[in-house]
Design a protein around this nucleic acid. Structure first.
Lengths: 211, 211
DNA sequence: AAATGGATTGCCCAAACGTACAATAGATAG
DNA sequence: CTATCTATTGTACGTTTGGGCAATCCATTT
């Protein structure tokens, strides 16, 4: 029987212990090593590139988070199957993980059996994504498309959130005040609002702007 | 040696397993039972009120979250030592937990030793709060005091966030438009902003309004 | 080449906004 | 009791906002 060597990366000792316990029964899974953040994990991987068949990692961690770790792997051209374990069903997190190169994403509250299944399939190179998470991603894409703002509109919106007046924004962006207002009207229509105040609330809640 | 019977409440199997493993070495701690959400836990507690010396629970859980569970206990006049385990160091969560009656609060990334210590001390009736968390709470109180808005001002601010005009707010609240503007001026001064748009951004980021 | 559609801009205007000056009434402090 | 402070409101004024109408320019389509 084939065996898969796994690296566990999570800052919570509880989670690491729990994962070990869960995989104890599965003889084809070997917890080869563990790390408490992305930096430690990167050091382990760099020390011996072919040591692991799968990296099981958390997203939020001190020092270096999971997304940054995945990006580092990509930047260095290291190709290892990676599976992200996350608590949140936040579409942004999931999308960021996949974008950064995660093969699979699994919610931490998944059942023992599903977790083992996903680990094995991902270790073999398969990409696994819970139907639940797929729906969340779809919903997000839909939401974003419905309210898709052009780069200029986003730029204007960002300045609105910071409290700039139309005239200031015009000067800032090198366009006329009337054009700023035109962009604003378009933004209002797309976000289904009728004033700067509402637009700001909408922008922050929908995370259309970085704050 | 005295022994403490503990109820573990967490929706993640991993965490439950991890906790079991951690407390395995400590013979004075007995994992008497476990539940995957507040509702299950409540049923267990109601079935036999004096079964547990300590309830170790997570905040975010499906069906019934930790805060609601604590409030239920309080409403029913049930007094059991409770210890909240949380991932987030969000001041709101911590405050809500303590407000709802949690004896102790501990971050999930605490070391094994600290976790055992905290469990034992809380089971004895002591209240434990990490210095780290105390600082977070202090910082929050300070922030809130610095920008303390009166009830009427908060009411106005809430309507501003929803996009209401001054005239509408005046009608809504049964005061004159001029008074609304006076409140607004005061809000601007306290939040150090100069327009509705900025005020909305500030209010949402500082969580001065429920959205 | 002609047409269609989007982006940009100007002019204009009513409404809303933010604020200064000031008056009134109620509460609190001395 | 008097004085001070706070909350409320009125009048007024300049600025900003949101949007209607229309001209211009540029790119894509036909």
């Amino acid at each position: 029987m084939e065996q898969y060597r796994i690296l566990i990366v999570d800052d919570h000792p509880i989670v690491r212990e729990g994962l070990k316990l869960i995989f104890e029964t599965e003889k084809s899974i070997i917890i080869e090593d563990e790390a408490s953040n992305g930096a430690e994990a990167l050091a382990l991987v760099l020390a011996e590139t072919n040591k692991f068949d799968l990296i099981l990692l958390d997203i939020s961690m001190p020092v270096m988070d999971g997304i940054t770790f995945l990006e580092q792997l990509k930047d260095r051209g290291i190709s290892i199957n990676t599976m992200v374990l996350t608590t949140s069903d936040d579409a942004d997190d999931i999308q960021a993980a996949l974008q950064a190169g995660a093969k699979s994403v699994l919610l931490k509250d998944a059942a023992r059996k599903e977790m083992i299944q996903t680990v094995l399939r991902t270790a073999k190179g398969e990409s696994v994504l819970q139907p639940e998470l797929q729906h969340i991603l779809q919903a997000k894409r839909k939401l974003q498309q419905d309210s898709l703002l052009t780069p200029k509109e986003l730029s204007v919106l960002g300045r609105i959130v910071k409290g700039s007046a139309s005239k200031e924004i015009a000067l800032d962006m090198g366009i006329s005040e009337r054009t700023v207002k035109a962009h604003l009207s378009s933004i209002y229509q797309k976000l289904d609002v009728g004033s700067r105040a509402e637009a700001v609330a909408c922008a922050i809640v929908r995370k259309l702007v970085t704050y």
